[in-house]
Amino acid sequence: MTAEEPLLQATNLHTWFELRQWGFLRVGSVRAVDGVNFELGRGESVAFVGESGCGKSSLARTLLGLHKPTHGDVIFEGEHLSELKGEARRQYLARVGYVQQDPFGALPPFMDVRRLLSEPLIIHGVTDRDERERRIRKVLEEVRLTQVDEILPKFPHMLSGGQQQRVVIARALLLEPAMLIADEPVSMLDASVRVEILNLLRRIQQERELTLAFITHDLSTVRHYADRIFVMYAGRVVEQAPVERLLDNPQHPYTCALLAAIADVDADNALEERAVPDGEPPSLLHPPEGCRFHPRCPQAMAGLCDRQDPPLFEPEAGHYSACWLQDPERG
């Protein structure tokens, strides 16, 4: 992190979804994002890691302005997202690019590549056809789809998965964003292409000095592509640290469990069972009191973890963990 003003700041961000019956009776709220604070610096690559249902995708959508935060706010380049209206909001959308999980689904199947890449430009008022063509060709080169003339008239289903994802990335870059949000950008791709796409994202991020928020469930891919990691559980960030420190010296029991569950390829893996915490992530409709991980935590302390929500402790500089085990006052 740098000392200068952060590009994006999430302050006490909550995104709850109201559950209604018959369209109007309020039954409760699904607390998808439930009190998240962080700052993302310019040119930084961060990873949000967690299981499905931990709120990482809802967080991404909130940052993209697709969901309205229930409480708290996102401050981007000094402006409050919730106060942006009309043209200012559109300008914001242009400043944040979005790369989705399913590259085929992310491209309108009835538009050819030229058409679908023109769309964002048309929406953002680039009326000159030649200007659009020039910008489209430029980003396609940037994502290494070098046979531009071959690619432009193709429909998404004629492209391979890797090419589709490159087109998605190109589309995210068209409007010259300051930040890119990539939601599981490689989980639907073949192993052999994944690394290629991740390298591409990383290179573009560094060349353009973008802020890259990269959402994944797979800790093993994170090391080379992110500077910092946020581990999320049940709508909250439970641990955050620079990538090396988090992977080599995890603090939160949930992070430890995640890391223990991942196999580095080895034939011995087949010989023994892995330690996996019992149970499943809690319901976001009725999250448990206290620490949200305590029902599954092997180190849970009765009377503390099931009563009080742990704040973020800082066991080492720049490494935060929301666990009572890291409470310096506990000794």
Partner: peptide
Amino acid sequence: VPRLHQSEPPGY
């Protein structure tokens, strides 16, 4: 194959 504890980035 990406590995958790590996200093070189994976290839493709």
